[in-house]
């Protein structure tokens, strides 16, 4: 093998390694891409710090709330108000009602999605129950708040926005968290139920 050949092999092997890691880099790149373009109606799962802007520049839109229990997750879950009329540039608080209807303590995670997807980039949340997992004891119920704002740059053709929350049962993956939560709250979840 001559020098040129060895060099080519080195370069190619580096390229292979580089592309392998690039495939993992696609994951955060995709998230950035989604945020910029609103691809998929994906929303940031962390609080943002947008202050209210001049309401006089805002316009009226309606927001429709929907819900779904993934894999028929047995909790009661749904929006308190199905439709609200709001003005862009101003904060509103909406709530979702949730109740653990089973005999076991469970951990749930809600995942938001917005339609049309290009509205997602203009939705900011100060507070949302989707930022963290929800642990509910058997029979426990709660009103979960989401504090949101649509900025004034929302494209003009969008007057109606659907905000969807899908709730997932993530108990299996969070047994430790569940145990420590039950411990803190002085209850052993195995004793609950029938």
């Amino acid at each position: 093998m001559n020098e040129g050949g060895k060099k080519t092999i080195k370069m190619l092997s580096l390229a292979v390694l580089g592309m392998f890691f690039f495939s993992f880099a696609l994951v955060p790149l995709y998230d950035v891409f989604c945020e910029v373009t609103g691809l998929n109606g994906k929303i940031d799962l962390s609080p943002s710090r947008i202050v209210e802007s001049d309401i006089s520049e805002g316009r009226d839109i309606t927001v429709q709330f929907v819900s779904h229990n993934n894999e028929q997750m047995p909790w009661d879950f749904g929006p308190s108000d199905e439709v609200i009329n709001i003005t862009t540039g101003k904060y509103y608080t909406a709530t979702y009602y949730v109740k653990n209807t089973t005999s076991k303590a469970m951990v749930a995670q809600a995942i938001p999605s917005v339609a049309p997807s290009n509205a997602a980039a203009h939705l900011k949340k100060l507070e949302c129950f989707c930022f963290e997992q929800q642990i509910l004891k058997p029979g426990e119920e709660a009103l979960l708040p989401v504090r949101l704002i649509f900025d004034n740059e929302l494209p003009d053709n969008i007057n109606n926005i659907v905000l969807s929350y899908t709730i997932f049962d993530v108990t299996e993956d969070n047994l430790d968290e569940l145990a420590s939560y039950m411990h803190e709250h002085g209850e052993d979840h195995h004793s609950m139920g029938s």
């Binding site: 292979v16 390694l17 392998f20 495939s23 993992f24 696609l26």
Partner: peptide
């Protein structure tokens, strides 16, 4: 092949 087979490997690894 050099460019995309590692990406496939990445996908199945994930």
């Amino acid at each position: 092949l050099i460019a995309v087979m590692p990406v496939l490997a990445g996908a199945v690894t994930m």
